[in-house]
Design a protein around this nucleic acid. Sequence first.
RNA 1: GCGCCCGUAGCUCAGUUGGAUAGAGCAACGGAUUUCUAAUCCGUAGGUCGGGGGUUCGAAUCCCUCCGGGCGUGCCA
Length: 659
Amino acid sequence: MGTDSLMNALAELRARFANALAEFTPDPAQFAAMVKPTQDANFGDFQANCAMPLAKQRGENPRVLAAEIVGKLDIADLCQPPEVAGPGFINIRLRDDWLTEQINRNVVDSRLGIEQVAKPKRIVIDYSAPNVAKPMHVGHLRSTVLGNALYRVAKFLGHHVLGDNHIGDWGTQFGMILFGYKNFLDRAAFEQNAVGELARQYRLVSQLTGFHEAKAEHPKAENRLAQLQSELNAAEPNKPTNDKSAEKTLKKLRTDVSDVREQLTSLKKQIEAVESSPPLKALADAHPQIAELARFETAKLHGGDEENTRLWNQFVPQCLAAIQGIYDRLDIRFDMTCGESFYNPMLADVVAEFQAKGLASESDGAICVFIPGNAAPFIIRKRDGAFTYASSDLATIRYRVNDLQADTMLYVVDTRQSEHFRLLFETAKLWGYGDRELVHVNFGTILGKDNKPYKTRSGDTIGLESLLDAAVARARQIVNENDDSKPEGRELSDAARTSVAETVGIGAIKYADLRHNRESDYVYDEDKMLATNGDTATYMQYAYARVAGIFRRGGINREPLRSGGGRVVFTHPSERALSLQLLRFNEALDGVLAENRPNILTDYLFATANSFSTFYQECSVLKEPDEAIRTSRLLLCDLTARVIAAGLDLLGMKTCEQM
RNA sequence: GCGCCCGUAGCUCAGUUGGAUAGAGCAACGGAUUUCUAAUCCGUAGGUCGGGGGUUCGAAUCCCUCCGGGCGUGCCA
């Protein structure tokens, strides 16, 4: 395969442009990078935007320069003669013979034309990271789905990737279960379902703790409200006419008042939830110091207390096994699960090293790293001597660099922790890890239809499991309806329907998450993600199933088809469009990794499935009388199916042969 | 108070280091089916890209400012 690079049209064009541009600039690569796919097919397949900025730099006429560049270009083997348009765009249309050459190469390529990277990096992807003490909830969805997609793509492109689940197994939450276990355990329930009972303990202790805090906070909030209210009442009547700053203060007061009101109602709700239930109220009254006692259990665990250590060793594997159930369903496996407890033994040494090197200093009793230009300190040990997640994260970096030889570390974590990671990375740089790539792959919040963080109507967080169940149940309904309404009656067995529903339901959730720009918040809308039309996982899965249907109906074996020596030929515009689209798979994958944005791949797959649907509409395959054309179309179908299945697989989604 | 982010079509969202007439999906309207699966395709309509100013041959994108919203903010992770 001496012409590997030809498989990537964009890269090849850029290389050719770089050659031509060498005569005009010392930095041809920068300008060659301005070759891009066109947005509008009327302008051809690719466009080069380099003439304008280059002309500006050289003080020349951009159109004239564009023509000169075209004159130096050696691309006649791949493109039709380029055209200069507008202020100096160079429009390029690939030659059909070159295109068919490439597509025929990909048709028989097991990697679908995707090369592995020349210089693989060792990448650690830190994602999902649930707290094992409590059930996974909607807040874990994005990290889990996004991280896994990046993991799969990086791996497919040939990087050495380690997926690491940095679980919370050592924090205050564990003290809460320990306290609950010792004081409130329902033994029978525990025998029957240990993890469920532990989760109940967590919720119970957390509720009681919250109750006492709310009790203490409530009068303070009322005072604050009263004070703000009176300030507002005083300010409101002498409303200034044209005083901007006074107006602003007034507005600020109003929002403060409504904020405190909101806080008050939520406190009341918390209090009422306990007080309206006599058994809960009795528990609360019996344990006024519950928060402190739970913290004490955590401290005992950290101190090596025998009983707590024994319970911890018993609980953690059980909790992990329960979480694994969700991962199995989501088709996710980690290479390693090194949580907080794994790094615990290293923390004292890390802090000592920072102190010894003079990188950290004491402030108000806490050990802090102060980064110039940052107001907030990076606290690596608290006043009470306990370590923080800052110290744990530093130990993690050291481990990943020294023991795992990581070049790149990705942290797929909520954007609200941006500041923490900024400080963490700065601190790591001071510590001597400035040569490693540390990236916070941040993402936004999943919102409910009220545009607030997604919660149940009563304000509880939504369990991940129930989210999956709901989507699958809805998918099952749709599968039933669709299959029942087939012209010749139902085609799927009950078992098949169940399996399709799982594939479609889980796919819907994942796709809905991945198709958004990760940095945006998005509204969780089950109706939309499971709609039978539109930009959904189902659309891609359906396109795949249609291809599978062709091969099934035609009784065609795909392996022999590929090796049968048939060739793709263009007889219809939709065949060309589909082929070009299929050849762009590598652009999409490169794009995903360049910015850690899987939505680039969802966009690509949607466009691909769309291209296919058009082709499917315009070109009959099995009914095509000309055998060469029929074979050509079968080859296109086969490659389409493989690209869609591979793309979905890289996003963590499955396909079905029939749906 | 300080810091970060966002504001694009009626709704949900894309928009690649500044590029051509700002794009999808849904909803609306009009077409296509003796179905290789209509969970589809083709078309129409819909936007002062929050307002204003600036830089540029060229701005949704960069800078300033104002308005509106979200998030974070020294010992939770």
